[in-house]
């Protein structure tokens, strides 16, 4: 018999499995990062430390343009989806209206429907239903991608904000109204401060998902509006090179940075439970 009943965590086969799983998850990423600093052309034999591949990246205008495109798209899509998602969540939470359930379910569609289907949906939409003008000056040329990203991102925001609203004490809003605030004033003074952590988490999620998205962008992007993942995909298809490793490492670093900033901000907000 075992002494401590909660000892599942100390049982060695379980620990071994946990360690093996973590190795499975991280080993490929570690190898990828390591070989981005390799001096050789080959990505499997270590030839010494070098920043050669990073230097090449910096001199690759197409890749830099793609990175710029991705950041612009992610920024605009994040802002738009924060706005739309918050508005939708507030309306669904606050009001009773015909079609409320339908809208709530409908907003889950972009999350549930496979990405490939959304991708072809936007391909069809921008090719046939509302033809997106070509030859627009940058960054307007990225408009179609921003619209498509916003469509699949704002439902995520709506869900996160809605979940946060569930923990809102409605008496707080009533208190504000009782003390003389009208509907808008009460929303602004009491509800929005409560939503801060959810808005931060939403922004982080939306930005990351937009930056990550390949499939939907793949169908919406034109030859002049290649985003970072689409560009990387073309490189990956073509060959496995240390250059791709370097690009990927940069993106990993960017993601890690975002996550770190998010965790820090969240901790600061979280210091004040409500």
């Amino acid at each position: 018999m075992r002494g401590d009943p909660l000892d599942y965590g100390r049982c060695w086969p379980l620990r071994l499995l946990l360690a093996a799983t973590l190795a499975f998850l991280y080993l490929p990423l570690v190898v990828l990062v390591a070989f981005s600093f390799n001096a050789g052309r080959r990505v499997t034999v270590w030839r010494g430390f070098s920043l050669e591949w990073y230097e090449r990246l910096v001199r690759n205008p197409e890749l830099l343009a793609a990175l710029g495109n991705s950041l612009v798209v992610a920024s605009f899509a994040t802002l738009l989806s924060l706005l739309l998602g918050t508005l939708a969540a507030l309306a669904l939470w606050r009001f009773r209206f015909p079609g409320r359930i339908g809208l709530e379910r409908g907003l889950a569609l972009p999350i549930l429907v496979p990405e490939i289907c959304l991708g072809v949906a936007f391909l069809v939409f921008f090719a046939r239903v509302v033809p997106w003008p070509t030859g627009l000056p940058w960054p307007l040329s990225l408009g179609a991608i921003v619209l498509a990203h916003t469509s699949f991102l704002f439902p995520f925001v709506a869900i996160l904000v809605r979940a946060r609203l569930e923990s809102f004490n409605p008496e707080l809003e009533e208190a504000a109204r009782d003390l003389g605030a009208g509907t808008w004033r009460a929303l602004q003074d009491v509800v929005l401060p409560h939503l801060k952590p959810a808005l931060l988490a939403s922004a982080l999620l939306a930005f990351t998902l937009s930056l990550d998205d390949f499939v939907i962008t793949f169908f919406t992007a034109g030859p002049d509006t290649v985003t970072f993942p689409v560009k990387v995909y073309a490189m990956v298809r073509f060959s496995v090179t240390p250059e791709v490793n370097a690009v990927s490492t940069l993106l990993l670093a960017l993601t890690a940075l975002l996550a770190w900033v998010g965790v820090r901000l969240q901790a600061r907000l979280g210091g004040r439970p409500s």
């Binding site: 004490n169 008496e171 707080l172 009533e174 208190a175 504000a176 109204r177 009782d178 003390l179 003389g180 605030a181 009208g182 009460a186 003074d189 009491v190 401060p193 409560h194 004040r272 439970p273 409500s274």
Partner: peptide, 17 residues
């Protein structure tokens, strides 16, 4: 918000922020 009454709520409803 236009009534001359003010309320003490059961949960107190103090604004946490």
């Amino acid at each position: 918000h236009r009534r001359p009454v003010n309320m003490v709520f059961q949960s107190y409803a103090l604004f946490p922020h």
